[in-house]
Design a protein around this nucleic acid. Sequence first.
DNA 1: CATAAAATAGGCAAATTTGCCTAAATTAAG
DNA 2: CTTAATTTAGGCAAATTTGCCTATTTTATG
Lengths: 74, 74
Amino acid sequence: MKYTRHPEALKKFGERLRELRKAKGWSQEELANRADIELSQISRIERGVINTSLSQVFVIAEALGMEPRELFTF
Amino acid sequence: MKYTRHPEALKKFGERLRELRKAKGWSQEELANRADIELSQISRIERGVINTSLSQVFVIAEALGMEPRELFTF
DNA sequence: CATAAAATAGGCAAATTTGCCTAAATTAAG
DNA sequence: CTTAATTTAGGCAAATTTGCCTATTTTATG
């Protein structure tokens, strides 16, 4: 079986990210700039339509000033 | 800039995974079967040579019987 | 309502991942 | 030491991701 996908988990992860970003009062663009990731990619991640990579998770956590682990608390 | 990579973080993540897998006394093959992921892919992840996807992290955590968050505790 | 800001959508090309396979190398065990 | 078990390595094709771009939709604001 190719390309494992976990839609529900990706959705939850995206919602968690959105929550944390908004808690900072940031727009997707602001987060995108800080993490040096494309705005459209942030949107895709938050909507859970993409199976993001670990590295992007790391740089996003860094941009948010928190531990990666906190993005998985849901 | 294309394809963000965080080699150090990927390395740490891989080491953490190996640690947790061995704590269970499992071979890579055993984990691979349980998570329904290729053996060679488990090897790549543990060595930190690949920028794995979120979904694989989720299914691996599931196979290990733990929360994804625990894989990021290092 | 009107305007601006923010988020979503979709297409495209290049880069990367992933499963599948075989072979080699390392480690564990008898 | 020998053999088996485990892990690493590498190539390949197909699938997916990602950045880049433009347009559209939704949400916020005056």
